[in-house]
Design a protein around this nucleic acid. Structure first.
Lengths: 190, 190
DNA sequence: ACCTGAACACCGTTCAAGT
DNA sequence: ACCTGAACACCGTTCAAGT
């Protein structure tokens, strides 16, 4: 029998980096990036704000880095990319990545900063890998990977801002728009 | 003869929205967005921070909106776009817009927010116009305009973060990378 | 090891007051 | 009309102290 730790006001389930990042993401998704403060985050975790520094010594900077990693690190699955059509693999990845960015739109501004460059590099690298395994030349693969990743991020930015057509207030079918642009980008790779 | 207002400690050249925005952009470009505070901006303008509110009643929100408009509103020149090759017109616009975004990289996070949607809409509209005058069908033009604008913004984001290749520390030739991606996007439009 | 409480140097913004 | 000064309710972070 495993000894259960006694739970009371003093000894709660302890904080962890994961729990902190998840709580922070919940605040950003629900209330926006501007309302993510160390004090509010502490409240959400039922802890004093200063307790967070014990787990994230670099403070808020490290917290934001964690959010970027959590949202932006979503590499394409290279498994079986040689067998399957690599265009379909990239299309599937792009759809998922777009959904991810839109679900956490509040994190988008952080993705566009100098912070935490490794997060996006991993994702970009996985796209290159899919292309190379699909038989695309190295140079072309590098260009296509960055073009595709840039397109998905930039398009998500336009969607979030809901850029209207031409000043007219005609609504845009963003799903169709994204797919058409995606075909344009992926279709151009050879 | 026009009467010159006397200039002394009391009656300096008065504040204006333009001067405020320009000073703010200088701070962002030189020290980063995080160091743009109303108090520091006041210092730069040799005025108390509270004086700014007289010109920007919505305060910092309005200040940031102004920065976005100043940086992101750079429409393509449609003049003579029918005569000239529209692909060249778009290529030239893209190069200029990219340079603009990189010169004011600190503003990039603001471009990716819900604020001030009109700024980007104008730019997107001008791209559509260039395409339509070049004889591209309406639907295709709308897609291509958003794809191109999304690509340029997203690519600028990748550049600012200096996404390394694949985890290796091999440096990327961003100029060449951008041009190649641009050809991919523009070349795909028909 | 993990968390708290008080304190410090900042923020954005309001509001009444000065010229 | 245009700007100032004091004040308020917040920030992020430090540091010594508690358990």
């Amino acid at each position: 029998m495993v000894r259960q730790p006694s739970i009371n006001a003093q000894h709660r389930t302890p904080l962890s980096t994961e729990r902190i990042i998840e709580a922070a993401l919940r605040i950003v998704d629900g209330q926006g990036l501007g309302r993510l403060t160390m004090r509010r985050l502490g409240d959400a975790l039922e802890v004093e704000a200063m307790a967070i520094y014990h787990h994230l010594p670099r403070g808020k900077e490290q917290l934001l880095d964690g959010l970027v990693t959590h949202v932006a690190s979503a590499p394409a699955e290279a498994a079986g990319a040689a067998a399957a059509n690599w265009r379909d693999v990239l299309r599937t990845w792009a759809a998922g990545y777009r959904a991810r960015l839109l679900a956490h739109a509040g994190v988008l501004p952080l993705l566009v900063t100098r912070r935490n460059p490794a997060a996006l590099a991993t994702t970009a690298g996985s796209l290159r890998e899919v292309l190379r395994r699909g038989g695309v030349a190295d140079d072309t693969a590098a260009v296509a990977a960055h073009t595709l990743l840039g397109y998905v991020i930039g398009h998500a930015a336009l969607e979030v801002r809901d850029t209207r057509e031409d000043g007219a207030d005609r609504a845009v079918d963003w799903d169709a728009r994204f797919d058409a642009g995606l075909d344009l980008v992926i279709g151009g790779v050879r």
